[in-house]
Structure formats: C-alpha cells, structure tokens
C-alpha cells in the first residue's frame, strides 16, 4: 500500500476506506473467527474493529503497516468479545439446569469449519492468538512476540505444543483420505 493511499486512509477518504474494506475484510473476518470461535461474533469483532480503526485513523503513526495496525485493533475487539463470552459461559456453568445449552454452544462453535479450525478453537486464548498469527497471518515468531509482549521462547513453546497437536490431526485427516 503506497504512502499516498495511507495518507488518504488517515484523512478518511471514502474511496480509500472502501478499497481497504473490500480488499482486507475477508481475511480479517477469517482471522477473527479463529480467535473468537464463532462466525457471528467474528462479524461483530470485525465490524467493531473497523469502526474503531476509522475513528482512530488520525492516531496512526506509521510504526507498522496500516493493515497490521488495523489487524491489532480487530484482535483487541476479539479479546473484548472473548472476555464477555467467558463471563457469559461462567454464568451458564453456575447453573446446574443447563447442560444442554453448554453442549449446544460448544458444538455451534466447533462444527462449522474443518478439523484444524476445531483444534485451534479449543486452545487457550494466548495460544490461539499465537497459532492464528503464525499459521493464518504468516507473521514471524519475533513479530508475534513483540505484538503479544511475550518472549520468543514462549511463542515457540506455544507453537511446538500446537504443532504436535495439529500434526496428529493432519495424520488422521490423511488416514481418512486414504480410506
């Protein structure tokens, strides 16, 4: 993205934002669905994230790529939604009367896409962010560490654990394809 386009985005030019949304919203939505584990919540996160980015556009300092800056804002919206979801699920768990709801919510989050998505959706929040940024966004370990405020070794540990798990799933998928 050229300097001229970035300055137009910072100014809030409609056509520049239109191009940005149409170029990047699919990718951001897919990242969000990995982070929140639900299509509708991901749409909410993307919508809130893009609106927040538009509002904050004049605060963009050019320290990262514009797309990376917006990605960070959408990730923050995903975290907010996850925090709300945790509270909601905790409220549900304290009631013994709702096992069927807990079951339904779990399955709604985990049957929509494929096996790797399901495995990533079941990880803890930090591990899920590391795995998403590495495998989906193709970020380097050092960039992930800086962005999440972790040591590179911690990021590598998360990736090693996730890789082992995902490797097993890939093996099972391969066996399924062979049958």
């Amino acid at each position: 993205m050229g300097e001229e386009n970035i300055s137009r985005l910072v100014e809030g030019a409609p056509e520049a934002w239109g191009d940005f949304v149409h170029c990047h919203s699919d990718s951001l939505l897919r990242m969000a669905v990995l982070l929140v584990g639900d299509r509708d919540l991901a749409q909410d996160a993307l919508q809130d994230g893009l609106l927040a980015a538009y509002r904050a556009r004049q605060g963009f300092r050019g320290e990262a790529r514009f797309y990376t800056w917006v990605t960070a804002i959408v990730i923050n919206e995903c975290r907010k939604i996850n925090r709300l979801s945790v509270k909601r699920e905790r409220a549900v768990r304290i009631s013994a009367a709702v096992p069927e709801l807990a079951h339904r919510e779990d399955t709604s989050a985990s049957t929509e896409f494929g096996s790797l998505y399901n495995a990533i959706a079941s990880l803890g929040e930090q591990e899920r962010e590391v795995v998403t940024l590495y495998y989906f966004n193709d970020w380097k370990v050092s960039a992930i560490a800086t962005f999440l405020g972790l040591k590179e070794g911690t990021v590598k540990s998360h990736l090693a654990r996730a890789r082992n798990r995902l490797r097993g799933i890939l093996r099972r998928i391969g066996e399924g394809d062979d049958e």
């Binding site: 699919d26 939505l29 749409q43 993307l46 896409f113 096996s115 790797l116 890939l170």
Partner: peptide, 24 residues
C-alpha cells in the same frame, strides 16, 4: 501444510457485499 490447510478450511467464509457497503 498446516497453514495451507487452515486457509483452505476458512476459504468459504467471506464478508457479504451488502454488509461491507452498509459498514462503509
């Protein structure tokens, strides 16, 4: 392989045009 497969799993997920237009 993981990266390619993951992107493939999510490839059908996209933002509807009318929603993007409304957001804009």
């Amino acid at each position: 392989i993981i990266s390619a497969r993951l992107k493939e799993e999510l490839a059908e997920l996209y933002v509807r045009d009318e929603w993007a237009s409304e957001m804009m």
